[in-house]
Amino acid sequence: MGDAVIEAAALTKTFTRAGGVLRRRARTAVTAVDAVSFTVRRGEFVGYLGPNGAGKSTTIKMLTGILAASSGSLTVCGLDPSRRRTALARRIGVVFGQRTTLWWDLPLRDSLTLVRRLYRVEAAAHRTRLAELTALLELEPFLATPVRQLSLGQRMRGDLAAALLHDPELLVLDEPTIGLDVVSKATVREFLARINAERGTTILLTTHDLGDIERLCRRVMIIDHGRLAYDGGLGELRRTVGADRVLVVELDRPAPPIALDGIEAERADGPRQWLRLPPAANAAAVIAALAARYDVRDIALRETGIEDVLASLYRGDRAYGRPAPGGQRSSAE
């Protein structure tokens, strides 16, 4: 368990919206991030989730010092981001998936040269690092191509290289796989897993792609309506929100809804019926009982995916199993 890279305590950001030129007084305050507390330790790989507009991007802008917090305290790499923005920028890498840090009209190689100058990377260190990143991200074929001609997947790999050239302690990723095809996504994920494991780079990842989360993050934080609604392990999240299992039973012919030891079909469609299993139920016993009493042609057991879990959480159909403990939560390892 390493030391803290990010420490947020009661972090809050309130925006004031003017009601229009003629109605100066009709200002409304919108709290985008509401008293969020968490700690991210060195070497962690944390997923930061939440529906659109929940406050994820605002949090990231505060972490990088682009926005100042309205109240609460925030320390990143031991620095106050908004006061020490420039010093902090040299120690963290940021990728905004929907934007690019590369220069549109310049070949990728030149953009990376400019980034090297921006972050004052020594020539020798730069050579080594660039060679490493070029190999890992397979940049070689398009290093000489102007950025505007790169495919989205190539551009994202270029952006990742640009964010990591100065060997930052912390990498903040805002939807790095958005719009990527499955192969590009796999490349990016594999790369991220590797730098986290091998270089110990701490990573905070914002994404709507739950494949990213399931493959990469040991810990997830969920922000909803500006509040930290969950902070813990992914498996724990599934359990605490009571992710149900569903048995899909296909009978020989249409039949009345199945009723079995307190488990009832919640849906029927011709010969097919859906049975929701309570968390405590033993699936094997239920299947055996079904096979004994009905003419079953086929049975499938479906686990609720993390996607279903989140969708129902965001919609408010289901309560977050356990409120996020304030501030003291560390990794779920």
């Binding site: 923005r85 940021v94 934007r99």
Partner: peptide, 13 residues
């Protein structure tokens, strides 16, 4: 206008 300035503002310059 597009918000890309966030990248400029993040840079150590």
């Amino acid at each position: 206008r597009t918000g890309d300035v966030a990248i400029d503002l993040h840079r150590p310059v």
